[in-house]
């Protein structure tokens, strides 16, 4: 055989053997023991890496789940896109009790449609809410309202939020929304909020986050909360679901029973419900419980 080939084979062989030994010892010395269950739990998760659980991706969440299962407390851990089924499967695999998670949905809290809050200015910069937000208060003048450039739409991994061309506002598709919360953080004005879906999809919310004084807010938008507090007074005394702060009413989801009494009394129509609200009743009977009805889209439009 040609000695050149022989020498090269020998040299390379020695080098390879040396490198293999180094690698062997390094792998021994710096070995990371990993729980094999983490991989299997990660396989059970949806794998979208949306971050809705608050952990960096599905694997990060799987690690947290395994850790929590060992500690015996899995409450507070929830995979919003996977929902109850996924969590039940994870719980069964890890042999631990899974906490009951309230199904949530993203809610857009702005009623400044092109009609109710007509634009006074033009904006022809890049279609990015964050950029427009840093420049000015918005084409309709409301410093709290939706800018309508669709950062929330762009960020959604589930095709669950779309711009309504007529109103200029984003609309959430309840069926597709998994409440991962990406749109909540994408909105520079924090207009979108995750709220519980509610029993039989019944929920009530204040469709405005404007903290200006009533007259000021009204000037820019016909659908703004004008801080009149009629809703606060209408809410049954035992419930008191309203939090009134900084010229703005907010419905506490823990307390609200979704009776819908506050919806028709709002003079600007700034309180919305997913069901047909009851007609206003005299004050003598505050605790009216309307019949549950299927979700209707007309109230949200």
């Amino acid at each position: 055989m040609n000695p050149v080939i022989l020498y090269s084979l020998a040299t390379l062989g020695v080098l390879a053997a040396g490198a293999a030994m180094i690698l062997f010892f390094v792998a021994r010395k710096f070995r990371v023991d990993e729980d094999p269950r983490i991989d299997e739990v990660a396989d059970l998760l949806p794998g979208a890496n949306c971050g809705g659980c608050g952990y960096p991706g599905c694997r990060g969440f799987a690690e947290a789940l395994v850790k929590a299962a060992d500690a015996g407390d899995m409450s507070g851990l929830n995979c919003p896109p996977g929902g109850g089924d996924t969590m039940a499967a994870v719980g069964a695999f890890l042999g631990a009790e899974v906490g009951e998670a309230t199904p949530m949905v993203a809610v857009v809290r702005c009623g400044g449609t092109c009609e109710k809050a007509p634009p006074k200015l033009e904006y022809n910069g890049p279609a990015k809410c964050d950029i427009a937000h840093k420049l000015f208060s918005g084409t309709n003048g409301c410093p709290y309202g939706c800018l309508g450039l669709g950062d929330c739409v762009a960020v959604c991994d589930y095709d669950a939020i779309h711009m309504d061309k007529e109103t200029g506002l984003p609309v959430v598709d309840d069926e597709k929304c998994v409440a991962c919360g990406l749109c909540v953080t994408a909105c520079p004005r924090r207009i979108i909020e995750l709220r519980p879906k509610g029993k039989k999809n019944r929920r009530v919310w204040v469709n405005c986050i404007n903290k200006e004084k009533g007259a000021v807010a009204r000037k820019n938008c016909q659908a703004a909360c004008i801080a009149c507090q009629i809703c606060v007074k209408t809410c049954p005394e035992k419930i008191q679901a309203f939090i009134f702060k900084d010229n703005l009413a907010y419905i506490d989801t823990d307390k609200c029973i979704a009776c819908g009494l506050c919806v028709p009394v709002c003079p600007t129509g700034a309180i919305l419900a997913t069901f047909t609200p009851p007609k206003p009743k005299p004050k003598t009977k505050p605790e009216a419980k309307p019949e549950p009805k299927p979700a209707s889209e007309e109230a949200t439009s």
């Binding site: 910069g125 890049p126 990015k128 964050d130 950029i131 840093k134």
Partner: peptide, 12 residues
């Protein structure tokens, strides 16, 4: 291209 708009966005 809206170069400066996005650069400002990145810069902030």
């Amino acid at each position: 291209l809206p170069l400066l708009d996005y650069i400002r966005y990145g810069k902030t």
